[in-house]
Design a protein around this nucleic acid. Structure first.
Length: 573
RNA sequence: UGGCCCUUCGUCCAAUGGCAGGACAGCGGACUUUGGAUCCGUUAAUGGAGGUUCGAAUCCUCCAGGGCCAACCA
């Protein structure tokens, strides 16, 4: 139906700026120049497969893959799957999909769970060197004896167990002779260390649980600190980027890779995690939204997950541009939603075809238009300032739908739309002047009547008169009905994480984060579009037909982002 | 016996001892067949006090404010 369909080409011309130099890249550049690692730059993105990736992960993905590309290095995708009770292959698959969709390709795919054997060998080595011991205290006792930030810990009564006894116990732990929680392997460092992480950190714990990849091959599982740095070292990672809250872990990271004998071990550097206004970015909270049914799933378009943003219609280019714009630094950063929305609009503006859709229809009858006559107008798919071409036919008839908001019976001075006695332009169509208002029994406006000027086909007046307002419309006889889902911020407060004492973050959920409109009317040119098609509904916003719920004859559109609305400001004055 | 980190326009990021700059947001204007986009203009910041220096956002000291750490989570 379209004379040209640019929507078939998914890639818009690259508008991405060269990557900026942040403190991490400065450091990598230095290390690359000095050849300090004696191997190519190597990064990794290390998600735990216990949930879906979100926009905060996207920042990390862009960083790790970006650095690898910029410095001609490599980047691994490593699943940090050391906790059998929370992880699932389903999350592994979702994470792969999301990273690929974002536009990145990993060099090697690795799993921490493939390193269990090597980690266990290192555990035995540490025991042999007197650097680790088996502690048989209860979980509570271990916690209590760790001390507090201001009080030193006290050594475990098992801390001085002979090497041979430790080794025997460790082997029996590994062999499955002990129930959960009876023994743990701890590093022997310093129970009075000012850094809590260094107070004899736990290395291995017993978990008689089936691992989604290793099945029941193992019943001792490494903890994060034991697994992470050593996994980096196994893979020859040079730069291990993580978020600020791991700063204290760095000391332990270094202790472990040195004790394990790595000559030029990877180096951890921390950067600020992303915080976004009006949303939460903790997996625990996102999981709760899903399991408690506050959203329809991990891919609910209101979720800040990659899957949610994708289903909402956000493009990978927009997410990458956003990541580039916000930069990487070491101070806690909270990003305004406007910054993200700008990146989305900026990308969509240049690549998405325009169509007309009326969300809340009001009947407009052109009284001087001949009954039954249809005028096929040719309307461009892109505005004058977007360098793409193409057009589609749009039928015009006697009865049209216009937006309820585009008519006011008693308008303020600056209202440029339709009102009794006023003339407006019907986009790509004719100039019309409102003559009558028809009301229903309740006194509500049920129909508006107007006359059109036959000399203004296309929207220009030959006499040069200026018409300030242009409104969108669809032909009532040709319109396609659709469901439109208007998504808004998930929370009504900028910092849902900052919950007042004794309150639940769920309480600040925005009750209007989804407004479903069932009787929307859209111009017929979109009728055969496949699910997942993006359009701008002129004057309203950017939309994408839902990849799962939309089908021919029962179209469903998700609002990706509204257009900037400067009228909203004028209106409030 | 606490340790560590952070602090530059409203927000985010630069300035690496030498004119505090960019982006988003805001405001004003131009243009406009999207109250969109674009273009132009503009408001707006070095947390405080000392010190070093010809010169400090940058180095030092102290103070203030914020953050992280006391899961057999990552």
């Amino acid at each position: 139906m379209r004379s040209t369909d640019h929507r078939a080409s998914p890639e818009a011309p690259s508008r991405e700026a060269p990557p900026r130099r942040d403190f991490l890249r400065e450091k990598v550049a230095e290390d690359a120049a000095s050849g300090r690692f004696g191997r190519p730059i190597h990064t990794r993105f290390p998600p735990e497969p216990n949930g879906f990736l979100h926009i905060g992960h996207a920042k990390s993905i862009c960083l790790n893959f970006g650095v690898a590309r910029e410095f001609a290095g490599r980047c691994n995708l490593r699943f940090d799957d050391t906790n059998p009770t929370t992880e699932d292959i389903r999350y592994v698959e979702a994470i792969r999909d999301d990273v690929r969709w974002l536009g990145f390709t990993w060099d090697d795919e690795r799993f921490a769970s493939d390193y269990f054997e090597r980690l266990y060998e290192i555990a035995e080595m540490l025991v042999g060197a007197g650097k680790a011991y088996v502690d048989s205290q209860s979980e509570e006792a271990i916690r209590e004896r760790r001390g507090t930030v201001t009080v030193p810990g006290t050594p475990s009564p098992y801390r001085e167990r002979p090497v041979e006894e430790n080794l025997g116990l460790l082997r029996r732990m590994r062999a499955g002779e002990f129930p959960d929680g009876t023994h743990v392997l701890r590093a022997r460092i310093d129970m009075a260390h000012p850094n809590m992480l260094m107070r004899d950190p736990l290395l291995l714990r017993i978990r008689h649980a089936s691992h989604y990849r290793r099945g029941s091959a193992w019943c001792v599982y490494p903890l994060y600190d034991f697994a992470h740095g050593l996994s980096d070292a196994f893979e020859g990672i040079t730069h291990s980027f993580c978020t600020l809250e791991f700063k204290d872990n760095r000391e332990l990271y270094q202790w472990l890779v040195r004790e394990a004998g790595f000559e030029r071990p990877p180096e951890q550097t921390e950067f600020a995690r992303l915080e976004l206004d009006y949303t939460v970015l903790s997996k625990r909270k996102l999981l709760r939204l899903v399991t408690d049914g506050h959203v329809t799933g991990w891919d609910d378009p209101r979720m800040p997950t990659i899957a949610g943003l994708r289903r909402r219609g956000v493009t990978p280019e927009a997410i990458r541009a956003f990541a580039d714009r916000i930069g990487v630094a070491r101070s806690d950063a909270r990003i305004e939603l406007a910054t993200f929305e700008h990146a989305v609009r900026d990308d969509l503006n240049m690549r998405v075809p325009r169509v007309m859709a009326v969300l809340r229809p009001l009947k407009l009858v052109i009284t001087n238009w001949p009954e039954g006559q249809v005028d096929m107008l040719d309307a461009p798919l892109y505005p004058h300032d977007v360098p793409l071409t193409g057009s589609r036919p749009v039928p015009f008839g006697r009865e049209l739908w216009i937006e309820r908001d585009d008519f006011m019976e008693d308008p303020p001075r600056k209202f440029f739309r339709l009102a009794p006695g006023r003339e407006v332009r019907l986009r790509y169509g004719y100039l019309v002047t409102c003559t009558d208002v028809v009301k229903n029994a309740a006194g509500e406006v049920a129909e508006v009547r107007a006359t059109y000027d036959p000399a203004t086909r296309g929207g220009d007046a030959p006499d040069g008169r200026r018409v300030q307002g242009t409104i969108h419309w669809v032909s009532a006889a040709h319109a396609v009905a659709a469901e439109v889902r208007l998504y808004d911020r998930l929370f009504s407060v900028p910092e849902p994480d900052a919950v007042p004492e004794g309150q639940d973050f769920i309480a600040s959920l925005n009750p209007e984060s989804l407004v479903t409109i069932r009787g929307a009317r859209i111009e017929p040119s979109i009728a055969a579009d496949p699910p997942g098609t993006r359009n701008q509904f002129e004057r309203t916003g950017y939309f994408m037909s839902d990849p799962l719920d939309s089908r021919p004859g029962a179209l469903v559109y998700n609002r990706t982002v509204a257009l900037r609305d400067s009228w909203a400001k004028v209106k409030d004055k």
